[in-house]
């Protein structure tokens, strides 16, 4: 599946590269910045983006791991004794502590 899917993508790109015209001009190949000249020099040269994206990324990692912990629990939940519920509850409550913290810190506020 992976192989064939990958194949499709690559074939498409190569076909296009072979078949399509190549008549680039400087202006045409300039980054689009609403008509202004680009301000900086391209990939990896000190571009800055809002720190908020980092925060979201980190939060995602944390909560995603939390989800990942939940999956095995969920899959086995019916076979587990009652104790599992309290364990899950503890887990969620601890998670909510962190959630409350980021909420109050305004990490989830977007301007």
């Amino acid at each position: 599946m992976l192989v064939s899917a990958l194949g499709i993508g690559i074939i498409a790109v190569i076909a296009s590269a072979l078949l399509g015209p190549k008549k680039g001009s400087k202006a045409k190949l300039m980054p689009y910045e609403s008509g202004n000249d680009p301000e900086h020099g391209g990939v990896g040269t000190g571009q800055r983006f809002p720190v908020h994206f980092y925060l979201v990324a980190m939060l995602f990692i944390v909560f995603d791991i939390e989800t990942a912990f939940f999956y095995p629990l969920a899959a086995a939940y019916q076979k587990l004794p009652q104790f599992a519920f309290f364990e899950a509850l503890t887990f969620v409550l601890l998670l909510l502590v962190g959630y409350y913290y980021i909420l109050k810190k305004g990490v989830l506020e977007w301007r």
Binding site: S16, A17, L19, G20, K23, K26, M30, G42
Partner: peptide, 20 residues
Amino acid sequence: IFKEDLQVTMADKLVYTIAP
């Protein structure tokens, strides 16, 4: 397929192609 495939001058060529 037959359209011109533009590639911006400041792009990272390899990643630019692989991403899609």
